[in-house]
């Protein structure tokens, strides 16, 4: 069993690349794959959340994605980046979940999950270190969002906070639908550059 200490835990292999960690995990080095999970659990969860739209389903899908990645370690040839490899596994897992949701009721979704394998996903989401890291990240996001131009921030707020559809935003702001999406896309891209400029480190 590979246990993850969560993204906020102190890294055991801070200087090693993802590819090296995969090689170490394949060769049987303890905790190598756990380090990969620490680095990528949040992004994989965000990807799953973006595809499924529900946190509980996204959490389960992320768990299953890491389980599938761990099982597929021997097949990783190193032709692609580890991040792309993990993304693909997560996307396929989410697509499977979506197709399953269309044909089955949600009550049966959790029955196939192995309880022992649930420990892959960060188990200390509410630990003090995680809380501190999240608080620091929230501060950075707040600064990034508030520094956006007004027209971009307006769309972000209406979409994320007001939970309006693109059509509703278009009608409210009296701008074309494509402009709404373009503004939101530009806003997210600008957020990325702003967030990358600020490193979040919590020891």
């Amino acid at each position: 069993m590979v246990r993850s200490g969560g993204s906020s835990s102190k890294q055991m292999f801070p200087d090693l690349s993802d590819e090296k960690l995969v090689e170490m995990a394949v060769s049987g080095t303890p905790d190598a794959f756990g380090e990969i999970v620490k680095r990528w659990d949040r992004k994989i969860f965000a990807l799953c959340f973006g595809m499924l739209g529900r946190e509980d389903e996204a959490r389960d899908a992320a768990q299953e994605a890491f389980i599938a990645a761990y099982r597929a370690l021997p097949n990783f040839r190193g032709e692609a980046k580890v991040s792309s490899w993990l993304h693909r596994i997560a996307v396929n897992q989410c697509l499977t979940t979506r197709r399953r949701n269309r044909t089955r009721s949600e009550d049966h979704l959790d029955e196939e999950t192995n309880e022992e394998e649930r420990t892959f996903v960060a188990s200390d989401h509410y630990s003090p270190s995680h809380t501190a890291e999240r608080g620091e990240r929230m501060s950075v996001v707040r600064q990034a969002v508030t520094s956006l131009p007004v027209d971009l921030r307006q769309v972000v707020v209406m979409k994320e906070f007001e939970e309006m559809t693109f059509q509703e935003i278009s009608e409210t702001l009296e701008i074309p639908l494509s402009t709404v999406k373009s503004r939101l896309y530009t806003a997210l891209k600008q957020l990325k550059s702003k967030l990358e400029g600020v490193s979040v480190e919590v020891v």
Binding site: F49, G50, M51, S83, H87, R134, L191
Partner: peptide, 12 residues
């Protein structure tokens, strides 16, 4: 995945 991560930051 990149867009989803950025969106989740705002959502979080």
């Amino acid at each position: 995945a990149e867009i989803a991560d950025l969106r989740y930051s705002v959502y979080e």
